[in-house]
Amino acid sequence: MLEVNGLNARYGRAHILNGVALSVGENEVVALLGRNGAGKSTTMKSVMGLVRQTEGSIRYEGQEIRGKASHTICRAGIGYVPEERRIFGELTVEENLEVGRREARPGAPEWTLDHLFKLFPNLEERRRNLGKQLSGGEQQMLTIARTLMGNPKLVLLDEPSEGIAPVIVEQMAKVIEELKAEGLSVLLSEQNLHFARLVSDRAYIIEKGEMRWNGTFAELDAQPAVSQSYLAV
């Protein structure tokens, strides 16, 4: 579904990603693990067309999408949930969802407001509140719901468990399971190994902009040195 190869990314003169390669299969949940500053967010932004200077290949459903405008990439079926959430604070919850709304897409699950409110009950109560009035956890729910309104096939989830209460993290895990059950593919970036293990099928480990390791969690457990050197703080 998504094939990234030899991806380089730069901000100005800073060379951030160096030959990153990864793939996400149909209906698979893949974790991208790494410490703070490893390059997880930059990888996701590059896929989404939000980094200007990139080289290499990013193929989605067989098509090269590197260098395309981000709205084109979104319309092709990739949904992006940014780490900073980037809720429209001056818009109501409903309006935030409206911004994300797109036509249904053949081969992807179709999300309606009702369905989303079932998945995120808090949002329904707060549908007329402004984005900036929501709590951190609610904002995290809203940013996911907003992306789902675009009926994507592949979702890029950037550190969804960051900075939210443990109860919400549990809810988040359920949401990801639900996405998988609906048939979506997910690329999930995480520092929280525990959470990633709960929801993902396999994992990549990135450090200093380079891929260091990939495999299943069982394989990761068999090599404690790997997580020791790339993930432990």
Binding site: C74, E90, V99
Partner: peptide, 21 residues
Amino acid sequence: GVLVRAATQDREMVGALGVNQ
């Protein structure tokens, strides 16, 4: 109008949600 207000706040995000800027 909703898109315009959203873009006033964060136009890059509006683009990432599929709106042609």
